[in-house]
Structures are given as structure tokens and as C-alpha cells.
């Protein structure tokens, strides 16, 4: 089983490396959305410091959405997905491997570039540290939940918009505790609670989401 998971993971990463533009596009989208906000709300440093974590988090949600459409679409159109469904290995494990690849390609880069964007918003070192930790805990949840939506909307017309309609409401708890942690940390309320909750979300999603994704893939491909 682990060999199958590993080979799916390596295959997805290799494919993505052959088409680096897709990976870069997500990242650049993230940077542009975050950089556009000051034009909308004005360059007031105090205001931007308050808005920063929320803006970065919302932009991360949108960037994750953008790349989710491709999660299964390529495998669906060239028939690889049907082969994966036929393998004796549990489909949930293979789905988890694909989600992991998705996070490595579109979640992790956002986490790594977030501190730079945080500096644009004048966030302090402490705030940046909290922001990176929450993104590190939260973005995998986005990939895991998003995979269920991506599997459900596979091959449907208007799939992209539909996907965001299904998945974005489910992201609300992650957004609340991810963006809220920075506020809580700066106001001295302690962020351990936020970390634990985000970790709990991650654990819950890790256990449940691959099963739901596998079930959704079976429904969509049949």
C-alpha cells in the first residue's frame, strides 16, 4: 500500500514539475490578490496591520480553490483515474497521496511566501511566526476538504464555480481560527487554543476526508 501511495505521490510531483507554470500561477495569483488589497482599502499602515492576517488567509483560500479544479481533472480525462479505481489498494490511501501532492505544490509554497507578504502589511515578527504556523496547520485542511468537492464536481459543466460554492462555506472554521490566531497572539490571549483547534481540524480531516473523496470519486466515475 505504501509503495502505491509513494508512486502516486511521485508521479503527481513529476507531472507538476514538467508543467511548472501551473504551480507558479497559483503562487502568483496569491501574491497579486494580497497586493491588490491596499489599493482597495488605502495605504493606512495601522489599518493594513489589522487587516493583514485576514487578507492573507482569504487569499490562501482562493488560491487553494484555484488549483483544486486540476486535482483530478487530468487523471479523469486521460483515464488514469479509472485505473486507480480498479487497483487493489484502498482508494482512500491513493486519494490521500494525491491530496498530499496537491498541498506540496500549492499549499506549501503559499506558506513559505506568506511572511514576505506579511511584511508588506507591517506585521511584527511574532505575528509572522503565528501566521506561518496557522497556515502550516490550516492549508492541508483546505486541500483535504477541497478534494471532496473536486471529486464531486469532476467533469461537470461550470465545475470551477460549483466547486467554490460547495467548498468555501466548509472553510469557514479554518478561516476563523487561522486568521483569529494572529489577533489573539498579539492581544496576549495566547494562541495555544487556536493551534490545538486547527490541529484537531487537520486530524479530523485527515481521517474523514480521504474516505469521502474516495466515495465521491466512485460516484463521479461510475
Amino acid at each position: 500500500m505504501f509503495a502505491a501511495v509513494r508512486s502516486v505521490l511521485i508521479r503527481d510531483l513529476t507531472l507538476a514539475m514538467r508543467r511548472r507554470a501551473d504551480v507558479l500561477a497559483t503562487l502568483i495569483f496569491f501574491v497579486i490578490v494580497v497586493s491588490l488589497f491596499p489599493f482597495g482599502v488605502g495605504p493606512d499602515a495601522e489599518l493594513l496591520r489589522v487587516l493583514g492576517p485576514g487578507v492573507i488567509w482569504v487569499a490562501a483560500l482562493l488560491a487553494a480553490m484555484l488549483s483544486l479544479g486540476r486535482l483530478f481533472a487530468g487523471d479523469y480525462s486521460d483515464g488514469v483515474l479509472e485505473q486507480l479505481l480498479l487497483t487493489p489498494q484502498p482508494l482512500a490511501a491513493l486519494a490521500l497521496a494525491k491530496v498530499l501532492a496537491h498541498w506540496l505544490l500549492s499549499g506549501l509554497p503559499l506558506v513559505l511566501i506568506a511572511p514576505v507578504l506579511g511584511l508588506q502589511y507591517g506585521l511584527s515578527g511574532e505575528a509572522l511566526r503565528i501566521l506561518v504556523i496557522t497556515l502550516l496547520l490550516g492549508t492541508p485542511v483546505l486541500s483535504l476538504l477541497g478534494a471532496v468537492g473536486a471529486a464531486l464536481t469532476l467533469g461537470l459543466r461550470g465545475g470551477g464555480v460549483l466547486l467554490s460554492l460547495l467548498v468555501l462555506p466548509l472553510y469557514v472554521p479554518v478561516l476563523i481560527f487561522g486568521a483569529g490566531a494572529v489577533d489573539a497572539g498579539l492581544s496576549g490571549m495566547g494562541v495555544d487554543g487556536h493551534y490545538s483547534l486547527l490541529a484537531a481540524f487537520l486530524l479530523g480531516a485527515l481521517i474523514l476526508a480521504p474516505w469521502a473523496t474516495a466515495a465521491a470519486l466512485r460516484i463521479s466515475v461510475e
Binding site: 464536481t153 461537470l156 459543466r157 461550470g158 460554492l165 460547495l166 462555506p169
Partner: peptide, 8 residues
């Protein structure tokens, strides 16, 4: 979301 998914 539920209605839109079923409709499409």
C-alpha cells in the same frame, strides 16, 4: 451548493 450540484 446542494441544489447547484444536483442541478448540474
Amino acid at each position: 451548493g446542494f441544489i447547484a450540484l444536483q442541478a448540474s
